[in-house]
């Protein structure tokens, strides 16, 4: 059914910390690996040893930001499906293959019903959906729906592959519909933001902006030489040691 649910019981999604992401692309590789070996059609590559292209559900961009003052900085920017509340990709689907789950808000594609028209990819402002060139069906992030509820996996592995693998801890998974959840707290604390809010998609995934860089106070390079020499008065020792200190200083 391609009509969106009024509300979802939970809003499972990711919080991505642009401050800590180091741009290693481990999440990209973990995503491709898991989603090629498990749920749905594998993510194919075309001409991998020539001029390669392939299907990815998670891609890491890098942006240079030049502030008004100070030096430019580099921000690595992982991007995958944002599991929008108002997902335009779902409502445009003519076959009912695309849907948003009421129980957890995950946006999925029923690959057996997908005709591969590509309209949902056109409707997505984030480039989260990619048509697989080998299978002719639309692929997208499933939030590793086959991991997070999978009781055959150890409990610590029941989170999306990208989150599990991130060596910098830049990706967080949880229920963004619950204001008390860790991810919601993180969003509140760090000012989590929506991408392209003007598109009206109401994304569930949030991005944490980079923290301001530490600023050192102005320090004179001659400081060690200019420092006042220590005196017995400064040391202010008491008792016998104090008497000795003061006496020796006088000599």
């Amino acid at each position: 059914m391609t009509q969106l649910p009024e509300t979802t019981e939970r809003k499972l999604g990711l919080v991505i910390d642009l401050d800590t992401c180091v741009g290693c692309h481990a999440c990209v590789v973990a995503c491709k690996g898991w989603n090629t070996e498990n749920y749905g059609a594998p993510l194919s590559d075309q001409d991998p040893y020539g001029t390669p292209s392939g299907t990815f559900l998670n891609r890491v961009h890098s942006y240079e930001i030049t502030p008004k003052e100070g030096t430019a900085k580099l921000v690595h920017f992982p991007k995958s499906c944002l599991h929008c509340d108002d997902a335009p990709c779902v409502t445009v689907c003519p076959t009912g293959a695309s849907y948003k789950r009421v129980e957890d808000g995950i946006v999925l594609v029923n690959e057996d019903h997908c005709i591969g028209c590509g309209l949902c990819a056109w409707a997505c402002p984030y480039g989260a959906r990619e048509m697989d060139a080998a299978e002719g069906v639309m692929k997208k992030c499933t939030l590793c729906v086959d991991r997070i509820y999978n009781e055959n996996l150890p409990e610590e592995d029941r989170e999306p592959a990208c989150v599990r693998t991130c060596p910098a801890g830049a990706r967080h998974f949880g229920d963004l519909g619950d204001p008390d959840s860790d991810v919601s707290q993180l969003v509140a604390e760090r000012g989590g933001m929506d991408l392209m809010p003007e598109q009206g998609t109401k994304p569930v995934n949030k991005y944490l902006p980079p923290r301001p860089k530490d600023v050192l106070d102005e320090v004179d390079i001659l400081a060690p030489l200019l420092a006042t020499p220590e005196t017995a008065e400064h040391r202010n020792l008491s008792g016998f040691l104090g008497w000795l200190d003061r006496t020796l200083e006088k000599i």
């Binding site: 642009l18 990209v28 001029t51 390669p52 292209s53 392939g54 299907t55 990815f56 891609r59 890491v60 961009h61 890098s62 942006y63 240079e64 930001i65 030049t66 502030p67 008004k68 430019a72 900085k73 580099l74 921000v75 920017f77 991007k79 990819a121 480039g127 990619e130 048509m131 060139a133 933001m193 929506d194 991408l195 392209m196 809010p197 003007e198 991005y207 902006p209 980079p210």
Partner: peptide, 24 residues
Amino acid sequence: SATGLGAIGDVRAFEPPHTGTNYL
């Protein structure tokens, strides 16, 4: 607006995700 980083400064695409092209 796409990156949400406009408040920090001028944003420029520095490096694409892959050296090759893609469906998008």
